[in-house]
Design a protein around this nucleic acid. Structure first.
Lengths: 205, 205
DNA sequence: GTCTATAGAATGATAGAC
DNA sequence: GTCTATCATTCTATAGAC
């Protein structure tokens, strides 16, 4: 597997000014609070203490703003994926999983929005670079062909990580506890496939 | 545990006319497609071939409409929870889990919205009957006190179920395959707690 | 119950002064 | 780069005729 070719496709590496980053961070907070669709330029501008025209000067449309937020957060995972593609031994998936979980716990709200906000999901599904990045992430997490069982496994992993970190039940848990527990149980999910691969599932009903 | 007392609190049992149900079903479809916040009365009315005033006659506010949709879908799980509360033996959680998974697979889009749409989540969190119902569901799935480990486990279970059924990776899977795979792996998640309970997690860092 | 019509507010987005 | 001001559109919600 020529990792140099794969690594070549980077996720939009365009740099941001400090002011732009402040807008993106504030927008992310409000997206998490109200959902993307219910968050207006006016609300973000008020939170920043500027007018919405000032924000339009930096992000010409709402889609562009949302994509920039998504890009900023997904980019944090890119190093982890590239590292995984560079190694490619039997412990690679577990190490990548740990980094994904860590990222999700540290950026709980962002992880949730990226996975579940209807607007973000629709936008990302329409942008090939994001889809390609997700494909790389999936391939590094669960190598090999993706038969139905592996697809369910991957979908469960991603949903469990993105959904758990903002679930009301864990709102009171500190990051260390949450990361430790979440990592333990997602590891089980990741390992279960290898065991189930050879033998036809035989469970007494 | 006096199950008769618990069963007494029912989730808003108010009946709906056929026309109301048609509105709720259409609304649910559009909520799934665009998100609740981005779905307007106008859009629902157009999809139904009526005017929005006709819908306002049945649901006086958008919040009321959203709550009615959520209520309609959550009510489908109520029988399963009551049955679980009535039995209360060691196999009860697994049986309840099976019914939750079945429901989620059969109503993929509804399950996803109930768990993740920002508007729905906010509304449900403000309505005690829904929270009480969720508490009952959680208690029946994982009996006993809910220390951090159990909370993460429950959050993962619910997130994995609600998130997986609409995940792009499983969009092509038929209901039977998805249910079977999802049930297998959620059972592992449910069982893992019992094993982890006695021993203090000792993993080499 | 459903329609037409509309009120009043907010939205995304732009023009032009400073 | 940020402001004021505005446009066209859409939104939730209501009034009143049929």
């Amino acid at each position: 597997m020529p990792s140099s070719l794969i690594s070549a496709r980077r996720l939009a590496p365009r740099p941001r000014t400090a002011v732009q980053t402040r807008v993106l961070t504030t927008a992310l907070e409000m997206f998490a609070d109200y959902g993307v669709s219910a968050t207006s330029y006016q609300m973000i501008a008020d939170a920043l203490g500027v007018t919405k025209a000032a924000i339009y000067n930096k992000f010409k449309t709402k889609d562009e703003l949302v994509l920039a937020v998504a890009e900023m957060e997904l980019a944090r995972l890119e190093d982890a994926v590239e590292e995984a593609e560079g190694q490619d031994n039997s412990e690679t998936p577990a190490r990548l999983l740990a980094r994904v979980v860590e990222h999700a716990v540290e950026h709980r709200r962002a992880a949730h929005i990226l996975q579940f906000d209807p607007v973000v999901v629709r936008l990302l599904s329409q942008h090939p670079p994001f889809q390609q990045f997700l494909d790389r992430l999936y391939a590094a997490l669960v190598p090999g062909e993706h038969e139905p069982g592996a697809r369910v496994q991957l979908a469960m992993l991603m949903s469990a990580i993105g959904g758990t970190v903002t679930h009301p039940l864990v709102a009171g848990l500190d990051d260390d506890t949450l990361r430790s527990e979440l990592l333990d149980r997602t590891r089980q999910l990741l390992d279960s496939a290898k065991r189930a691969k050879g033998r036809p599932r035989a469970r007494r009903p």
